[in-house]
Design a protein around this nucleic acid. Structure first.
Length: 479
RNA sequence: GGCCCGGUGGUCUAGCGGUUAGGACGUCGCCCUUUCAAGGCGAAGAUCGCGAGUUCAAUUCUCGUCCGGGUCACCA
C-alpha cells in the first residue's frame, strides 16, 4: 500500500516549501488511496523551539492538510515523535555494530575540526578519515565503559556506484568515495537524521519518500543503511527547490517564508496551497485554478513534478488568491474576515450588509484585508479626504451640486435607480455632466477617488450616514 | 574545490523529432465605465544557455561546454 509521510523538524514554523512538500505527500496519498503520516524529527536538541510542534500542526490544519496519523492522532506506527523512539534507534544501531556495518568513533569535535582544516589546506575534500574505523572492539568497549564520549558511524564501502531511480529525476548515480562515514548516533544518544529517517521509514512502512532536493546527495547513505538492515528501500522522489529572486534556496533571510506570515497577510489557505502546488507541478493542461485541495489531489501525480527550481513570485500568488476570494461563498468569506475586523478595531457588520460589501468588492480584493482596510469607508466615515482627488475632482460648483443632491437623497427612494435618476436630474438642471457630481459625492462619502460603483456605495453606507458624511464634507471642503 | 542536480520570454510553465514555440502572472495600449478594479481585445517580450554530433528534420536524442543551484556537520 502507498504510505507517505511529512517529517518536519520542530525548529520554529512551517516553511512554505515545507507546506508544498506536505501537500505533495498528502495529495499523492489521496490519489493513491494510501496513507499520509506526520512525523516529528526532533533529534537535534539544540535547535528545539518551544511550541513548534503545535505551530506545525496548526499551520497544516489551517492549510487543510490532515494527516491520517501523527503526534496529534494515534496510529499503528507510533509514536510519531522521534525523541520518543530513542530505544528503537539504539536497538537498530546495535544490530549494525554487531554485523560490522557501524562502529564507535571517539574523535572529539576539536580533533575533527583540525582534521578538516588540514584536508582543506591540502586542497582535498574534507571528509572523515576513518581513524576509528578499525579500532579493536575490545579497546572500544573498554573506552566506552570508561565513560569516554563517542558516536556511532556507519561504514561506507569504497568505490561503489550507488544508483537509484528517483521518481522525478530518473536514474541518479553517486559513488561511495564521495560519501563519508556518516554519524548515525550522536554522543548524546540521539540518532542523526539519516539513521532515524531510515529506521522510521521502514518501521512505518513508508512506500515513497517525497522530500526536498537538498536530500538528494545523501540518499546513497539511506540506501546503504537499508541494505545493511536487509530492508527494501522506499521509492525516492526529490522535489525541486523553491528559490528566491537570486535563485537561492528560499530562507528566512528572504523575508516571509513561513506559512503563518501568509496567513497573517490575508491569503486564503486554498489559494496559498494552489499557488505552491503549481510551483513545480502541473497536470499537463493549462489549468491553474483549483477550487479545493481534493481537486488538486485528483489531478496529482509524482511523474508530473518538475526537475528545476522555481522562483517564488508574490504577484502570481496574489493573483491566484484573488481568484479564490472571488469564488468563495459570501458566508465563508465573511467568517474568514472576522479576525481582520478585530485587528482593525471594527465591529463586523451584520451578514446582509457584509454580503453586499463582498458583492461589490469581489473584483477588487486580492487578500482578506482588502475587504476591511481596503474599504474602511463602508464601516466608518472618512477621517480625511484624499488630497489628490480633492484637487482633481472638487470644483467651484461642487458645494452647490452636492448640497442639491444631498436634499434629493434625503427624500428619494433608497434604490440604485432612484439615486442615479436624482443625480442625473441635478446635473442636467445645472447643465453639467454627471461626472461633475459623481466624483464629489464619492469623495464626500468615501474620502477617496476610487472604489465600487457610486450608487452601490451609497446604498451600502445607508441614507442617514450618507447625509451625515455629505454634510461633513460640505463643511470641511467648502473652501 | 569534489560530487550531484538543473537550464523554454522578467517569473511560473506546456511541449516529448516536423508547432506561426501554446497558456498564466507581470508590463504597455485600446474598449467598457462616474472612479478604481474586473472583464474583453491587442502589443512588446524566447536566436528554447552555448557548441558540436545523430537525423531529411532538432526546444525535443547524444556528447562537450558554460552558467546556476544543492550538498559535502555529533542540523535537518
Amino acid at each position: 500500500m502507498t504510505r507517505v509521510r511529512f517529517a518536519p523538524s520542530p525548529t520554529g514554523y512551517l516553511h512554505v516549501g515545507g507546506l508544498r512538500t506536505a501537500f505533495y505527500n498528502w495529495a499523492f496519498a489521496r490519489k493513491m488511496g494510501g496513507e499520509f503520516l506526520l512525523r516529528i524529527e526532533d533529534t537535534d536538541r539544540t535547535r528545539l523551539v518551544e511550541d513548534a510542534v503545535d505551530n506545525l500542526i496548526e499551520s497544516l490544519r489551517w492549510a487543510g492538510i490532515e494527516a491520517d496519523a501523527g503526534p496529534h492522532k494515534e496510529g499503528p506506527h507510533g509514536p510519531y515523535v522521534q525523541s520518543e523512539r530513542l530505544s528503537i534507534y539504539r536497538e537498530q544501531v546495535d544490530k549494525l555494530i554487531a554485523s560490522g556495518h557501524a562502529y564507535p568513533c571517539f574523535a572529539t569535535a576539536e580533533e575533527l575540526a583540525q582534521m578538516r582544516e588540514e584536508l582543506i589546506a591540502a586542497g582535498k575534500t574534507p571528509m572523515y578519515d576513518g581513524r576509528y574505523r578499525d579500532l579493536d572492539p575490545a579497546e572500544a568497549k573498554r573506552r566506552i565503559e570508561a565513560g569516554e564520549p563517542y558516536v556511532i558511524r556507519m561504514k561506507i564501502p569504497a568505490g561503489e556506484d550507488i544508483t537509484f531511480d528517483d521518481v522525478v529525476r530518473g536514474l541518479v548515480t553517486i559513488n561511495t568515495d564521495t560519501v563519508d562515514d556518516q554519524v548515525l548516533l550522536k554522543s548524546d544518544g540521539f540518532p542523526t537524521y539519516h539513521l532515524a529517517a531510515v529506521v522510521d521509514d521502514h518501521l512505518m512502512e513508508i512506500s515513497h519518500v517525497i522530500r526536498g532536493e537538498e536530500w538528494l546527495t545523501s540518499t546513497p547513505k539511506h540506501i546503504l543503511l537499508n541494505r545493511y538492515f536487509g530492508w527494501e528501500p522506499p521509492r525516492y522522489a526529490h522535489l525541486p527547490l523553491i528559490v528566491n529572486k537570486e535563485k537561492k534556496k528560499l530562507s528566512k533571510r528572504d523575508g516571509d517564508v513561513s506559512v503563518e506570515s501568509y496567513r497573517e497577510k490575508g491569503f486564503s489557505a486554498v489559494g496559498l496551497v494552489n499557488f505552491l502546488a503549481l510551483l513545480g507541478w502541473n497536470a499537463g493542461d493549462d489549468k491553474e485554478f483549483y477550487s479545493s485541495l481534493e481537486e488538486m489531489a485528483e489531478a496529482f501525480s509524482l511523474e508530473r513534478i518538475n526537475k528545476s527550481a522555481a522562483v517564488f513570485d508574490l504577484d502570481k500568488l496574489t493573483h491566484i488568491n484573488f481568484l479564490h476570494l472571488r469564488e468563495m461563498p459570501a458566508d465563508k468569506l465573511s467568517a474568514e474576515l472576522v479576525p481582520y475586523f478585530q485587528a482593525a478595531g471594527l465591529d463586523q457588520p451584520e451578514s446582509e450588509r457584509m454580503a453586499a460589501i463582498i458583492e461589490v468588492m469581489k473584483e477588487r480584493a486580492h487578500v482578506y484585508p482588502d475587504y476591511v482596510e481596503g474599504c474602511r469607508y463602508f464601516y466608518e466615515a472618512p477621517a480625511e479626504y484624499d488630497a489628490g482627488t480633492v484637487k482633481k475632482r472638487w470644483k467651484e460648483d461642487s458645494p452647490v451640486l452636492l448640497k442639491a443632491y444631498r436634499d434629493r437623497l434625503a427624500e428619494c427612494d433608497w434604490t440604485l435607480e432612484a439615486m442615479e435618476a436624482e443625480l442625473r436630474s441635478v446635473t442636467e438642471a445645472a447643465g453639467a455632466g454627471a461626472g461633475r457630481l459623481i466624483h464629489p459625492v464619492r469623495l464626500a462619502v468615501s474620502g477617496v477617488g476610487g472604489g465600487p460603483g457610486l450608487f452601490e456605495l451609497l446604498h451600502i453606507v445607508g441614507r442617514d450616514e450618507c447625509l451625515r458624511r455629505i454634510d461633513r464634507a460640505l463643511e470641511a471642503l467648502k473652501a
